[in-house]
Design a protein around this nucleic acid. Structure first.
Lengths: 347, 347
DNA sequence: CTGTTAGCGCCTTCAG
DNA sequence: CTGAAGGCGCTAACAG
């Protein structure tokens, strides 16, 4: 019941193992007589021969596997999309993904994880976090070509890909500005994550483009959750000069903003326009009206990571000059942005 | 820069490869003099020796890899949880997951995918769908021990694990009944998925437990989306004898039900109690009040699948008698169920 | 065109 | 207790 080997094929077709190998691999430059060729092929089919990629890898020093190392259990629904993106890119090149989630941020766990992958002779490694972060990747990971996914490093010379948070939030806020809104609130977070500073930067850039002065009092800090969104929006919307548009740190915050608006009798988008960030499927379109939001490009980042890795020159652990890719966060327009109320448009 | 091999260790420590191997593997029954033992260990450490698992596998016929084959790209946020569950169980046993998503339901793709995993000598295979389904697994997949994840098969003799849809919906509906509700609507789907019939069965079972007659007119069929939930709830709630509780086919439907309730001026849970299914994180708790719902146990199913596989006796593709596991769907209580309005409690 | 000879790195008898 | 020999399945020179 165990699988047929090359030897079996060779014996059945009465040629040497080498010849069988040549035929089956269509070695370029090795011309083989049509007759023997067919004999081998027939035998292979008859025995249902399948190469043992493991043995092949032992010989060629290429396993055809890409290690996907991640630092902690993802409770986010994003994990799947990154993994699938990476897997698709790998599959396109005939490689498979070998998965390892260390389940913690302990650096030693990372080292051990990378080691486990290396022992399996993975050709390259993707080091992923499930949340845009600044990390120090395990050192041994760089023994093979590697790239950082949804993370970047300051010291290490590795390519990386992260969402273009600035561009995404700028596009989101510009969407509001283009609709005529001039007083725009921002419910953000005080979590110490790169996204915080970057999304704020995008917010300010958009205002600059439209020559709208930045009003610090319109920026409120809250937990990046529905509850925080609710509180933040309540704060903003109960003012006399309430904003007509609110930009949210993420979609979950927007959920709370919707609640607050409803409670205050403001309808979206007639009385209030809202823009989110993340495009968490099933959140942004579970709201009514659908939430206009900047999408985190997880699938694309996963794909980019593996593609970049695969394009890298063999045996050179790190490229001469690492690439730091900012993946665009496309704006998904649903129904939460409308023209600014007339009164508000006047200076 | 390439890695040290066993040979290098042997040479450095002045013993034979065999001895080095014995030391490093702590072969039982092979007692080695403490002195040489330490010499080998020191050399190994000095050279930072790491075994080549690939070569080891070639010899031992065990790769330490478990294939994770799935039939289509998951756009669901569930994929990640199943994969992580499987990966965790694998890691517990020192195995790694080799991922392959065929990206389609074409049976031939499945065969090819299984073949690719087999060529890499995976020890076992998990065949997963990202949605409870009845499938015909690729035949070649059964060449190694396999189990079906979130899927089951009628003909094939394979173990499988699926959510206990009946139990979950029964618990959800009983939650409503226990709160005193007697007129309970059910907004379901006409999609041809196992969940449809099973969740309806659970609904009916719960009624039976409480001796409440099943009223067909309270079951409305809609798209399993927020929009469908909205329409279904509108239908139910505008009746004179409107239900005081609604059980939803899934959480997304519940989103629509919330909208309808709001529009009709009914507040949850004072005027209307709602129960969902799936516990899609970020949906169920993005609603206000939080949605009480039966959780799909994706992580647990993934974990169970791999554990079961690992417990299976080596080299026996399928167990004498396959196990079909129903994984409980625990009820997650949030704030959407309240006591039935007093008037409604009277007969 | 085809076969021989050598391993890849490791484990496993089986002798010393 | 230790080592020599053989082979897992496959490929890569290099000869014929």
């Amino acid at each position: 019941m165990s699988r047929a080997t090359l030897k079996d094929v060779a014996e059945l077709s009465g040629v040497s193992i080498t010849t069988a190998s040549h035929v089956l691999n269509e070695v370029p430059g090795k011309r083989i007589k049509l007759q023997t060729r067919e004999r081998v092929l027939r035998a292979a089919k008859e025995l249902m021969y399948r190469p043992n990629e493991l043995a092949r890898g032992l010989r060629t020093k290429r396993s055809g596997m890409i290690g996907f190392l991640s630092d902690r259990i993802s409770t986010t629904p994003f994990a799947g999309r990154m993994i699938i993106g990476a897997q698709d890119a790998a599959a396109d090149a005939g490689s498979l993904l070998l998965l390892l989630n260390t389940g913690g941020m302990d650096p030693e766990l990372g080292e051990r994880g990378a080691e486990a992958l290396l022992e399996r002779q993975v050709d390259r490694i993707v080091y992923a976090t499930f949340y845009h972060q600044v990390v120090t990747p395990p050192a041994n990971l760089l023994k093979v070509p590697a790239v950082l996914l949804d993370a970047r490093s300051v010291q290490a010379r590795v390519s990386s890909v992260v969402p273009d948070e600035v561009g995404g939030s700028r596009a989101g806020v510009e969407e509001l500005l283009a609709a005529g809104h001039r007083r725009i609130g921002f419910v953000t977070t005080d979590d110490d994550v790169p996204a915080r500073g970057l999304r704020l930067a995008g917010f300010r850039q958009a205002l600059e483009v439209y020559d709208v002065p930045f009003d610090e009092t319109l920026v409120v800090v809250q937990d990046p959750q529905p509850r925080g969104g609710y509180l933040g929006a309540m704060d903003l919307l109960r003012r006399d000069d309430r904003p007509t548009g609110i930009f949210c740190f993420n979609d979950r915050v927007a959920v709370g903003v919707y609640q607050a608006a409803r409670e205050l009798g403001l309808s979206i988008p007639q009385d209030l326009s809202v823009v989110g960030f993340d495009d968490q499927e099933l959140v942004s379109d579970s709201l009514w009206p659908g939430l206009t939001t900047a999408a985190l490009p997880h699938y694309e980042m996963g794909r980019w990571a593996v593609r970049t890795l695969l394009a890298q020159i063999e045996a050179r652990p790190s490229p001469a000059t690492p690439v730091h890719k900012l993946m665009p966060c496309p704006l998904v327009r649903r129904g939460s942005v409308g023209p600014a109320p007339f009164a508000a448009r006047l200076p």
